[in-house]
């Protein structure tokens, strides 16, 4: 059974004049890391919200098609009931803090309390989430005194503590500095190693090229490309979708024009593949 199965999903916001997602079908296997890319307003956040049930339960609007997380139909459950199945991390770190918990430990435990877990489970899961996100030393600090990167890690830890089968991240590094972004990506990499299913909407293509299993490109709410990162990120069409090649792909293309790249060798999208391509001529 796939971790996520979307069939012919079309969604229009209550105030929208055109659909933000159009006839979107997608299947994500367990343990897969799927990256969602696209220009602004291409539907990335809307897709993330739809998977977490925020659409259609919080933002109502016109929702057609089906969305299954495991066996659970998101349209039949409330957002809170879906919390055990889907974890959502959003863009702005500070806005994801509950506003009712005074320490990082309590902030992470908040979701578990809402789901009625006992103290032993709360302690074990919160401690594990703190350790995984490198926040153990901040457990008794106020989450409001942390940096943006640390707050985003708190949001991630809060979601991980609930242990959902599917993790959805909507551009989690947008407001973070390179170091903060690196830390978040390191955690995602560890989760991928542990076999977690992850859907990541992200603009930092270098990281996607390196670690994603599959990439989809959204434009006007439609999936325009869906393939491995190598295929998608060097695709000639990508420039027409508001995106650009990575510097490594551009370097490989220039090398090809200059005759420094083997004619039958496809363009690369990572640093190591470009170096290897140049070395082999």
């Amino acid at each position: 059974m796939p971790a996520l199965e979307i069939a012919h999903l079309t969604y229009t916001y209550p105030t929208g004049t055109r659909p933000s997602l159009q006839d979107l079908s997608l299947r994500v296997e367990k343990g897969e890391l799927l990256a969602v890319i696209g220009e602004n307003n291409s539907g990335k956040s809307t897709l993330c919200y739809a998977i977490a049930g925020v659409i259609p339960h919080f933002f109502h609007g016109q929702f057609n098609g089906s969305m299954l997380v495991g066996k659970v139909n998101t349209a039949d459950q409330t957002i809170s009931a879906l919390a055990e199945h889907v974890g959502l991390v959003m863009q702005i770190p500070g806005n994801q803090l509950s506003g009712v918990r005074f320490t990082v430990f309590e902030e992470i435990a908040f979701g578990l309390e809402n789901l009625g877990m006992n103290r032993q489970v709360i302690h074990a899961r919160t401690t594990a989430a703190l350790a995984l996100t490198g926040l153990s030393a901040f457990a008794e600090r106020s989450p409001y005194q942390l940096s943006g990167g640390q707050q985003q890690k708190v949001a991630l830890a809060a979601v991980l503590a609930v242990s959902p089968s599917l993790l959805v991240l909507d551009e989690p590094t947008t407001f973070l500095d390179p170091q903060g972004a690196r830390q978040v990506f390191d955690i995602l990499l560890e989760l991928k190693r542990q076999g977690k299913t992850i859907i990541l909407a992200e603009q930092r293509l270098e990281w996607i090229a390196e670690f994603a299993d599959r990439v989809i490109v959204l434009q006007n709410g439609e999936i325009m490309l869906c393939d491995t990162p190598e295929e998608v990120l060097r695709h000639p069409q990508i420039k027409r979708m508001g995106l650009d090649w990575l510097p490594y792909t551009k370097a490989a293309a220039m090398a090809k024009e200059e005759g420094l790249w083997a004619k039958d060798r496809p363009l690369s999208s990572t640093f190591s593949a470009t170096v290897a391509g140049l070395q082999n001529g």
Binding site: T78, L82, L88, F110, E113, N114, I122
Partner: peptide, 26 residues
């Protein structure tokens, strides 16, 4: 905007989940 985001954040962390809640602090 923040209020909307925080409402979503509370919902996705089970604030209105059915069933009894527990408390870490006793």
């Amino acid at each position: 905007v923040e209020m909307e985001q925080r409402s979503i954040a509370l919902e996705i962390r089970g604030f209105n989940a059915p069933g009894p809640t527990t408390s870490w602090r006793t």
